[in-house]
């Protein structure tokens, strides 16, 4: 567990350490907000309309394809760790798994969902 103690300390420290200069910056730096200064910066132009313009569904599809790969990779990692000791059957099982993963990619590719329009 001593390794995880280190990780826990590191998480706390690396969260707190950069917070100090931000607070110091708030204290040391001037603080004179006005409407023009705190206005949304869009290259000097007045901002028009809502910030929430409609984004294309493409972003969503890529995130979905990634999600599938992400979950599959999590399954593959322990298999990769055991790889050197795997018998023939285990190796074939892994290849079948990777090929299924590739099938997902081929499907998305052939159906044109990997095109960034």
């Amino acid at each position: 567990m001593s390794e995880w103690t280190f990780i826990a300390f590191l998480f706390v420290i690396s969260f707190a350490l950069p917070a100090i200069p931000i607070i110091a910056g708030r204290v040391l730096g001037p603080r004179k907000p006005n409407t023009i200064k705190t206005d949304t910066y869009e290259c000097g132009l007045e901002t028009v309309g809502d910030t929430w313009v409609q984004f294309k569904v493409q972003y969503y599809i890529f995130a979905l394809v990634f999600l599938v790969f992400d979950v599959e990779v999590v399954f593959l990692f322990p298999w990769a760790v055991a790889y050197n000791q795997l018998p023939l059957f285990g190796v074939i099982a892994g290849i079948v798994f990777i090929v299924t993963l590739a099938e997902a990619l081929i499907y998305a590719w052939r159906k044109g969902d990997l095109e960034w329009l």
Binding site: V68, V71, E72, F75, F77, P78, W79, A80, V81, A82, Y83, Q85, L86, F89, G90, V91, A93, G94, V96, F97, T100, L101, E103, A104, Y107
Partner: peptide, 26 residues
């Protein structure tokens, strides 16, 4: 983790769930 990997790809272990998971994700 090695044990987990060996069991995931073992015919008497969790081979079927391992492959079904990939088909499910597909």
């Amino acid at each position: 983790i090695t044990l987990l990997g060996l069991l995931l790809a073992d015919a008497e272990g969790y081979f079927v769930p391992f492959e079904v998971a990939s088909v499910l994700l597909l």
